[in-house]
Write a protein that binds this DNA or RNA. Structure first.
Length: 279
DNA sequence: CTTTCAGCCTGGGCGC
DNA sequence: TGCGCCCAGGCTGAAA
């Protein structure tokens, strides 16, 4: 469930490891989903590691950009193995890892060979090579960027009458937010997920902007949110889950007003919120 | 035009 | 014990 803070964490951890590495070879294991032009990558160097929305992007020395989107279960690991459930024998564990391996690159720097592996259990993740960085991302505003202001938020909303929850999840408006952080932001702002965006006052919009930035920054500081052991791997040892106020807390008393947190499904997605203090 | 929604995909957890 | 069903959720493209 990587959202902006989790992707940012992976980027921060990979940057010093991958910077300056030459890509020696690329092996695509999931050829049905991952299409890369043959021979277009080997020989190039990784200039840096950056984040564009929820994508992990490697600008290459030849001017192109190699991009990974983890979606739900994608993992991008350097010189390490996919952590699999405990209790498996070594050969079972390695067979499971091989089953989920989608792409592998051999890297070289200062004569040392290393590898970068892309795993993905559910195959939603994507890998692509583009010649222009503008081909990446989904067009939304970076919530931690300078241009995410109250007036930007107002113009993004425009004449939309969508629910607040659906609006905040839209990557063509604001990038990086997913279900967990949207639930947390709305709790913090005291707003009901089904409020329509055209009903919001200036003060409420201002609260959304402020809470979005505060929560994302705090989550990045804590290296994101990690849920189960299975998903905990290099680059995802986050601890923000201990600060979650509503997500996954259905049935528990609200930390603000003691009302029981509810979970409600709308449009196939679960919203966690407090019916007592989110209006 | 805007908005909603099924489908993609697998493994874990639950009820029977 | 094992089978069927539901759930996680970002994003696309089709339908409303």
């Amino acid at each position: 469930m990587p959202e902006l803070p989790e992707v940012e964490t992976v980027v921060n951890q990979l940057e010093p490891l991958l910077k300056g590495q030459e890509i020696v070879s690329v092996a695509v294991h999931d050829k049905a989903r991952i299409k890369l032009p043959r021979g277009s990558i080997p020989g190039q160097k990784i200039k840096q590691v950056i984040r564009v929305g929820k994508e992990i992007v490697l600008p290459l020395s030849g001017g192109k950009f190699l991009s990974f989107h983890l979606r739900m279960t994608g993992r991008l690991l350097w010189n390490s193995s996919l952590k699999t459930p405990s209790g498996l024998l070594h050969q079972e564990s390695s067979a499971l890892e091989q089953k989920h391996l989608r792409l592998e690159m051999k890297l070289k720097k200062n004569g040392k060979i290393s590898d970068l592996k892309f795993f993905d259990v559910r195959k939603f993740g994507t890998v692509k090579l583009v010649s222009d960085i503008s081909q990446l991302g989904t067009g939304g505003v970076e919530p931690l960027g300078e241009d995410f202001t109250l007036s930007t938020l107002q113009s993004l909303i425009g004449k939309s009458s969508q629910s607040l929850r659906n609006f905040l999840m839209r990557q063509d408006k604001i990038v990086g937010l997913g279900n967990i952080y949207v639930c947390e932001i709305l709790f913090s702002s005291g707003l009901h997920p089904e409020r329509t965006v055209d009903s919001l006052t200036t003060d409420e919009l201002s609260a959304i902007k402020k809470d979005t930035q505060r929560i994302l920054k705090r989550a990045i500081k804590n290296c994101g949110t990690t849920f189960s052991d299975f998903q905990q791997t290099t680059g995802e040892t986050g601890s923000y889950q201990k600060y979650l106020k509503v997500y996954g807390r259905e049935g528990e008393p609200c930390s603000r007003c003691e009302t029981e947190i509810v979970r409600e499904k709308t449009g196939g997605r679960s919203s966690f919120y407090c019916p007592g203090c989110q209006e």
